[in-house]
Every structure is written in structure tokens, then in C-alpha cells.
Design a protein around this nucleic acid. Structure first.
Lengths: 267, 267
DNA sequence: ACTTGACCCTGCCCTTGCGTCAGGCTGAAT
DNA sequence: ATTCAGCCTGACGCAAGGGCAGGGTCAAGT
């Protein structure tokens, strides 16, 4: 009977069995500071308590839902209150991501079935099979890569908005963004204060344009933020080029934020 | 105009664009010897030819279907003839694997939807939500892990066979396997030659028993082989224990193979 | 001839979620 | 005193590349 061991604690192996995970996984979570045992024995043994089991269960649930350990840590880090608030958002995003993955899998499965069907025909040479599959792939890959940044509802709303716009309207919107950013740049170059009347006028234009785009939907804004923050992963196509053209530079957003502060101060 | 560069070859970047992949990926494929350029310039530049493009396209198709680069290399390594033969088998297996993944994704998605629905209720505490999801997970995880080793048709056949057997029949079959392996072990211990009459008698028993199990279906045999070859990844449940009990040791299979050779030699 | 800029090479470390040793302690029972 | 199970840390491996560093090469413009 060990006197060192506080009551109702578990050594790592017991705890692993309780949670249905391996010892190594627990080591891993400990190193990531995702789940550290409540205590350590004098000699360094990990001693998990009952609350740790609750946390582990939460972790396992979120892992099952496909979140990365990093995301799980972020979600569980909040002193709670925030956790309950962010959970629904996370669920929605994760659902969208998984639905997209499933759609991708479905396409691959259809392609395989198609290929199997055609591979039956001995008259068809193999290289032809590869060629046609490749064409299918290229066609399918032309799906909108921006989708993954938005919640499903937000993306749906965006698509409706885009569908309702003519080509000229889209070009015009792009042009107005570019013009606005140009004006902001020029204001910065001329040393105009964000606090000035001109600064505040620019802010007003920015906000109007933004609302036009986000439809006042904060989820769209959130998605757009994530999209813009991930520029390094954009593919190299025309969509990306258009996006880059209307992407505000850090100094522009800095100017914008300062000007907003100024407006708030002045009421 | 470079005189060093043979006609109709591409440097790595051109080639990457033709194939729609990155330069780094081509480096990677080269290092894995999956796709090495037809030539190198004097100074070490990779020079890809038109045939390389064909091979790359094959690689991309198979990658799209979810095969690992290792599997792709194996499939493409055969001097062809074997390639055309193994392709349908590969497609079937891959389809089964992807279908399983899709089913898993479906379950997760349903779980998320369920959770979203219940998270609406503000009366329900968060921990309770986690608890019930965890229960769902445990229920879903109790699916037969052996399925992934078999083609869908083979697994279906196996299940029908199992359903048709009574508990006693199953126990009896296990017992006969264990007895056979015991007798083989004893034959080895006693220095009996696989070539002897006793050796050949054991082979006959082995084959009969095997046929009873595989129903003469080579796909089942194939799946069983893969299952047995992957013992290190079996989970730690009762099914695994039963499987281990009837798993022939390497020396048993060696004895078996020698005895089969002997039978073949003697007609 | 020289410089510039685009392109190429190799090699090394980074990612995710652990598994798998390896070497060395600890704890409890024999 | 030994022995065996259990614990620790640290390092390396995996798949499919991404990213970067340091250094060489090619073609064009000056």
C-alpha cells in the first residue's frame, strides 16, 4: 500500500484503460499540455484524478468529431463560459468541413465505380482509362476552394448573393474596392490622420462597401477574415488573383481600425 | 538555345505545370524512385520527357483514388501485364476502404447534427452533452474491426457463413484448428519430415479445414492473409484472442509449404 | 565581360498523432 | 536480494510533401 499516492488517483495505465486510450497518447497529451495529470508522485509518476477523466472524455469527443489536438486545446483552454459559447460555432464549422470531405469521398467513389465498370471492357486499353479518369479529376477539382473558410450557412448566403449579381456588378464591386484601397493608400501617403474628416469619410465608405459584401452577416465576415488570413495557402488561379487585388494591406486595416476608434470617440 | 538539352524535354517547373503538381512533389517522387526524370543535364538538372508525363498522370490518378505513393509504386513497378491484372483488384479494395471511411464520416456527421440539435436546449448542461456523445461513440466503435482486411464481397460472404453457424460449430471449428496446429507442432518437434506420409496427411487436413473456412473463395483467403499479417495492429479484445489462438506460427506455415511442395513433386 | 534575375540543385527541419524502441528508475512481491 | 511489472524521458519513424538555406546555372541585358 503506497502512502505517497493520494486517494482516488490513478496511475497512467489504469487511467488509460478508464479512458480507452493508450499510455503513449496520454504522454502525448501531457507534452502538448492538453491534459496534464492533477499530480505527480515524488518520483515523477503521473497521478490522474477524477476530474482529469472528465477532461479526457471531452478531448475524446472532440477528437472523434475530427478536431485537431491544437483546436481542442484552444477550445478547452477558455476558463469556460467562453467554451460553451464557442462550441456551437465549432460544431458548425466542423460539420461543414466534414461534409466537404464526404462530398470529396463520394466523388472519388463514383469515379472508382465508373472505372471499374469500364475496366470490364477488354477492348479498352488501360491508358485510355487513365486519361478519362484524369479528365474527370480535373473537372471535379475545379470546385470552389474558398468554401472551406466559411460556415455552410455563410457560404450558402454568399453563393446566393453571387448568383444574384451580374458580371458587371461583380466587376464594379471589385473596382470600388480597389479604388477605396487606393484612396486609403493615398491618404496614408499624404500623412492624413485617421482622425480627420477625410479619414472618417473613408471609414464610412469602407463600412458601406463591407456591408454590401457581407450582407451584415457576421458569419460571412468571419469566414472572409479566415480566408484573408490564409493567403499563403491560396492556389494559383484567377480567383486568387482577384482576391489579392482587393485584399487590404496591414497598413490599410491599421488605418481603418484607428479611424474607427476615432469615430467612436467622437460619437 | 541550349544545345545540351535534348529535344522535347522539360525542365522541372515546366513539367510540374504540365502535370499540375508542385516542383517539390516531383522532387519527392524522384527521391522515392516513383518518378525519376528520363535524363539529367550535365549540370544535374532534371529533364523530363513525354513518357514521364504519362507516368505522372497515372500516378496522379491513383493518388486521387487514395492509394499511397508506396502502393502506387508497387502497382506501377510491374513491367506491365501484371499492372493490368492487379488494377481491378486494387480498385475493388480501394473502393471498399473508401466506402468504409465514408461510412465513418457519415456517423460523425450524424453525431454532430445530433449534438447541434441538443445544444439548442439551454437547460441541458454541457457536460451532459459530452457524456451522451461519448456513449454514442463507444457504441459505434464496437463495429467489427476485421472488416477492413477483406474486400466487401468477401466480407459479406464471411458474414453469411458466420451467421449460418451455430455457436457450437464455431467453437468446434476453432478446436479443430487448434488441434491441427498442435499436431503440426508435435510433428515438427518429433522431427517428422514434411515429405513423409504423416506430413502429407497433415497437409490434407489443413487444406480441408482451410477450404471449410474460406469456402474456396480466394478473396477470403487473401483477406485472411492480410488480417494475419497485421497482428501487431489488432486491438485487445476477445475476438483478437480467439484469432491468435488459431494463428499458425511461421514454422507451421513453413512446414505446410514444404509439405505442399512434396505433394506436388509426388503428384 | 559583367551583372541580374529566374531557375535549379541538395539537404535539413517542420507538420499530425501518436507507435516504437532504448536506457534507466521505482515499487512491490518473492 | 532478486525479479518483474510499471514508470520515466528522449529520440526516431510514419506520409506527403512545404519551406528555407546555401550555393550553382542559365539566359538576357548592359
Amino acid at each position: 500500500m503506497s502512502l505517497v499516492r493520494p486517494m482516488s488517483t490513478f496511475r497512467i495505465q489504469e487511467f488509460a484503460k478508464l479512458g480507452g486510450v493508450t499510455v503513449r497518447a496520454l504522454h502525448h497529451y501531457d507534452r502538448l499540455k492538453l491534459l496534464s495529470p492533477a499530480h505527480r508522485s515524488e518520483r515523477g509518476y503521473r497521478l490522474y484524478c477524477h476530474d482529469d477523466l472528465g477532461r479526457l472524455e471531452r478531448i475524446l469527443v472532440l477528437r472523434y468529431l475530427g478536431l485537431s489536438l491544437h483546436e481542442i486545446a484552444a477550445l478547452l483552454k477558455t476558463p469556460d463560459g467562453g467554451g460553451a459559447e464557442r462550441l456551437p460555432v465549432t460544431l458548425a464549422r466542423q460539420r461543414a468541413a466534414l461534409a466537404a470531405r464526404r462530398a470529396g469521398l463520394d466523388r472519388v467513389l463514383r469515379t472508382i465505380e465508373h472505372a471499374q465498370h469500364r475496366a470490364q471492357d477488354p477492348a479498352e486499353p488501360e491508358w485510355f482509362l487513365y486519361q478519362t479518369i484524369l479528365k474527370e479529376i480535373h473537372m471535379q477539382e475545379s470546385t470552389d476552394w474558398r468554401a472551406k473558410y466559411y460556415s455552410p450557412e455563410a457560404y450558402q448566403a454568399l453563393r446566393e448573393q453571387r448568383a444574384a449579381m451580374t458580371v458587371e456588378q461583380k466587376a464594379d464591386a471589385g473596382e470600388r474596392w480597389r479604388a477605396l484601397l487606393g484612396d486609403v493608400q493615398s491618404a496614408i501617403d499624404r500623412g492624413i490622420s485617421p482622425d480627420s474628416a477625410e479619414g472618417r469619410a473613408l471609414v464610412a465608405r469602407w463600412i458601406r462597401l463591407g456591408d454590401e459584401f457581407t450582407l451584415g452577416n457576421p458569419e460571412i465576415l468571419e469566414g472572409y477574415r479566415r480566408l484573408n488570413d490564409d493567403e499563403s495557402h491560396w492556389p494559383d488561379d484567377e480567383t486568387a488573383a482577384q482576391l489579392r487585388a482587393i485584399k487590404p494591406k496591414p497598413e490599410h486595416t491599421a488605418f481603418f481600425n484607428k479611424a474607427v476608434q476615432a469615430c467612436l470617440r467622437h460619437g
